[in-house]
Computed example of a mutant assay.
Amino acid sequence: MNRLLLLLSLCVLGACALPGAAPSVTQHDLGGPFPADLKSAVPLRAIHVQAQPTVAGVAMLYREAAQPTRRASYAYNRWAATPASMVEAALVRKFGLEGTARCRLQLSLAEFIIDIDAAGKARALLSADASLYRDNTLLQAQRSFDISVPLAETSPGNGALALRSAVERLAGDSAAWMAGDAGRGCRPG
């Protein structure tokens, strides 16, 4: 009887020591489909977006002014896909592709992060280097884009919305860049 009581007591104590259920992970994306509303002055066969290693994963990253060399990730919040694949899908949707076109827009994503200053104000940062290729030849058309969008608050959800706005601006800035001298080697005629 004493052994049974001791065994039951140990089971009850053991159950109290078990960890609770882990919080669920929230997945974020850039929100609904991007409208196909930009007609590029340059017909594009393809758009490819690569990411630097610091932004190649699905962690939602932020940096605080108090520790400017440290990238941290929001706990229990992740991107639904890599930033590069989400940006690529958004740009393809915005511009559309033409199967007979000869040019390709190549982007290298260097930043996709929430930056929090010493006063606690946050902004979404998107940095990318763009190159324009005709067939497999790099044209003399390269440009860096550094886009900053302020956040109302530093929550992961607001960060995702601000980064969506940054991608919208990247699309508009890319279209304007390709409409200029950069896209001359890709225009028909």
Rank of each mutant, 00 (worst) to 15 (best):
2 N>V: 09
4 L>M: 08
6 L>M: 07
8 L>Y: 05
9 S>I: 10
12 V>Q: 05
14 G>D: 04
14 G>S: 08
22 A>N: 14
22 A>G: 07
22 A>F: 11
23 P>E: 14
24 S>T: 08
26 T>Y: 10
26 T>G: 04
26 T>N: 05
27 Q>A: 11
28 H>M: 08
29 D>P: 07
30 L>W: 11
30 L>Q: 08
35 P>L: 15
38 L>P: 00
40 S>R: 01
43 P>I: 11
45 R>M: 08
45 R>V: 05
48 H>V: 11
48 H>D: 14
49 V>T: 05
49 V>I: 02
49 V>S: 00
50 Q>F: 13
50 Q>E: 10
51 A>E: 01
53 P>C: 06
58 V>R: 13
59 A>W: 04
59 A>Q: 11
60 M>H: 06
61 L>M: 13
62 Y>H: 07
62 Y>F: 15
66 A>I: 13
68 P>E: 08
69 T>V: 11
69 T>I: 07
71 R>W: 15
74 Y>V: 09
76 Y>M: 13
76 Y>R: 09
76 Y>Q: 14
77 N>V: 14
80 A>N: 04
81 A>V: 08
83 P>S: 07
85 S>A: 10
85 S>V: 06
87 V>S: 01
87 V>H: 04
92 V>E: 01
93 R>A: 10
94 K>Q: 14
95 F>V: 00
95 F>H: 01
95 F>Q: 04
97 L>I: 05
97 L>K: 02
99 G>N: 13
101 A>I: 02
102 R>T: 11
104 R>L: 06
107 L>M: 08
108 S>N: 12
112 F>I: 04
112 F>V: 01
115 D>F: 01
116 I>E: 13
120 G>T: 04
121 K>E: 10
122 A>E: 08
124 A>F: 05
124 A>W: 05
125 L>C: 04
127 S>K: 14
128 A>C: 04
130 A>H: 12
130 A>R: 15
131 S>N: 13
132 L>I: 07
138 L>S: 03
140 Q>G: 15
140 Q>P: 10
143 R>S: 14
145 F>D: 01
145 F>H: 06
145 F>G: 05
146 D>N: 15
148 S>I: 00
148 S>Y: 09
149 V>R: 01
152 A>N: 04
153 E>N: 02
154 T>W: 10
156 P>L: 13
156 P>N: 14
160 A>Q: 03
163 L>P: 00
164 R>A: 00
166 A>M: 06
166 A>D: 08
170 L>W: 03
170 L>I: 04
170 L>M: 07
171 A>Y: 02
172 G>S: 15
174 S>K: 13
176 A>E: 14
177 W>V: 09
178 M>L: 15
180 G>Y: 10
181 D>F: 13
183 G>C: 05
183 G>S: 06
184 R>L: 10
188 P>F: 05
189 G>Y: 07
